[in-house]
Design a protein around this nucleic acid. Structure first.
Length: 469
RNA sequence: GCCCCCAUCGUCUAGCCCGGUCCAGGACACCGCCCUUUCAAGGCGGAGAUCGCGGGUUCGAAUCCCGCUGGGGGUGCCA
């Protein structure tokens, strides 16, 4: 069976890049009917927080991901301790008593000499007696993995292909910190092996770590999994997508009114493309059935907010059901301070969902449907100041009294007024629009009248007349 | 510095493995027209890539080989 995992560290909000990694890893597992594991990598006790962990989980669920197993590394320290012990006993690792200061010194010297830095291996040659006596003195120590010399680690990456790295490039690395907590390169191996992970799917920034991990797999006699390193996501300036590029967390997009399925869909298209050309709007189910690691592009992709926006619009106007859209939209109306009836919102959205790209934009555009009081823009005011506008409004008020209000009716009335007053269609509509929406652009006056209660329409007319004095 | 990865329209990409059907296809954005009471949406059309550069191999290269350049990533008692 295929087993993949997503292993975020709870040190911040779920980043778009990580979200995409999670999605690919998830799609892969589901495609093969395998298992998907979520593992919180919180071995760095300094930077990890429970709050971030909760938000990570919340965001992953919001995106539509689910997992079969859940682990938290901070709860598995006993396991790591045991395997670290084994490595020491088998001679693959050793205690190192060097202080941070000493190491800093080594690094500085290397830099001055212009040679690439790697740990000197000083403590590698400590005798048993020396080690014992240091320990008795209570000297803090780390445990380092002994990197074999002259070894070239080779692996076939499922995305990048053949990769060979000479491990002489890095020195013995720390697997257990002086405070007893294990480090990433070590725990990731122990966990992936123990959890039976068959495919390690992660960002390409992990490629340099891979040989170190393979060395540990071997030392522990674990079976080495397959690796698939995803290209990174870049910002507009082609550097790794980060906070300085603006909104880069899943949460940002959630708050801006993006539909989770749209974000999910868009993220999939960064670095991956469906085998069937031309179809880009794909549901989670479709993605699961067609997703293959082989179709992942090996070059980095620039995140394009415009296209995400467009895609979100597609989801709003034609993909999600009306009920779903209402559910998604309600919270945005509430946080904008509108107290409205769900049924009313549904009637509004049914006619207007094709005119905005994000829920937040929707709130703005649909203001005339929800706001108690509307305010006039400068352009609207200048229209209201037109002599003809008063006549239009007065006539409209009179004609609307005896009829049931609807978009069709309003069209008929507008035409009548136009004829009676000898105006251009534009003049009539502009006046009505200014009165009803306070703007000269936006939703159609007819659809506005289709759902807006008649008394509100009348109220706005009267208010306008009053405004005109 | 050293190590690693990458390179097709502005952006995401198809094609590259198995050279010719590619004077390179699709999508977003852009431009124009249509629809129209406005803005969107929608429909139709357009512009946009000498396939990073230079060498090879070949009758023929975006596709194979080599070099260069550019970009990105890594180089932690972070993950």
């Amino acid at each position: 069976m295929v087993i993949s995992r997503f292993a975020p560290s709870p040190t911040g909000y779920l980043h778009l890049g990580n979200a995409r990694t999670a999605i690919f890893s998830y799609l892969f597992a589901r495609h093969y009917g395998g298992k998907f594991i979520l593992r919180i990598e919180d071995t760095d006790r300094e930077r990890s927080t429970k709050e971030f962990e909760n938000m990570l989980i919340e965001d992953l669920k919001w995106l539509g991901l689910d997992w079969d197993e859940f682990y938290r590394q901070s709860e598995r320290f006993d396991i790591y301790r045991e395997y670290a012990q084994r490595l020491v006993e088998s001679g693959h690792a050793y205690p190192c008593f060097c202080t941070v200061e000493e190491l800093e010194e080594e690094r500085k010297k290397a830099e001055e000499k212009g040679v690439p830095y790697r740990y000197s291996g000083k403590c590698r040659v400590l005798t048993r007696e020396e080690v014992e006596s240091f320990k008795e003195d209570g000297k803090p120590y780390t445990i380092r993995f002994k990197v074999p010399e002259g070894r070239v680690v080779v692996f076939e990456d499922l995305i990048k292909g053949h990769i060979a790295i000479n491990v002489d490039d890095f020195g013995d690395f720390v697997i257990v910190r002086s405070d007893g907590t294990p480090t990433y390169n070590f725990v990731v191996v122990v966990d992936d092996a123990l959890m039976g992970v068959t495919h390690v799917i992660r960002g390409e920034d992990h490629i340099p770590n891979t040989p170190k991990q393979i060395l540990i797999y071997e030392a522990l006699n674990f079976q080495v999994p397959k690796f698939a390193h995803l290209p990174v996501i870049l910002g507009e300036d082609r550097s790794k997508l980060s906070k300085r590029h603006g909104a880069v967390s899943v949460r940002n997009y959630r708050e801006e009114g993006y539909i989770p399925e749209a974000l999910f869909n868009y993220l999939c298209l960064l670095g991956w493309s469906p085998p069937e050309e031309g179809r880009e709007i794909l549901s989670k189910e479709e993605l699961i059935s067609i997703f293959r690691l082989e179709d992942i592009n090996s070059s980095p992709a620039v995140f394009n907010k415009e296209k995400l926006r467009w895609m979100n619009g597609v989801y709003i106007r034609e993909v999600v059901s009306l009920e779903r859209l209402v559910d998604e939209f309600m919270p945005f109306l509430e946080s904008a301070g509108y107290k409205v009836d769900r049924d009313y919102v549904k009637r509004v959205l049914e006619k207007t969902r094709d005119s905005f790209d994000t829920l937040k934009d929707g709130v703005e555009r649909l203001k005339p449907f929800f706001a108690e009081e509307i305010s006039y823009s400068e352009e609207a005011i200048s229209v209201l100041e037109n002599e003809t506008s008063r006549a239009v409004i007065e006539s409209f008020l009179q004609k609307v009294q005896e009829v049931e209000l609807s978009g069709e009716k309003v069209k008929a009335i507008a035409k009548e007024i136009q004829k009676e007053l000898g105006l251009k269609a534009k003049d009539v509509w502009h006046a009505l629009r200014a009165v009803l929406t306070g703007e000269l652009e936006g939703v159609g006056v007819d659809i506005l009248c289709d759902v807006l209660p008649k008394e509100i329409v009348i109220k706005r007319m009267l208010k306008a007349l009053q405004f005109m004095g």
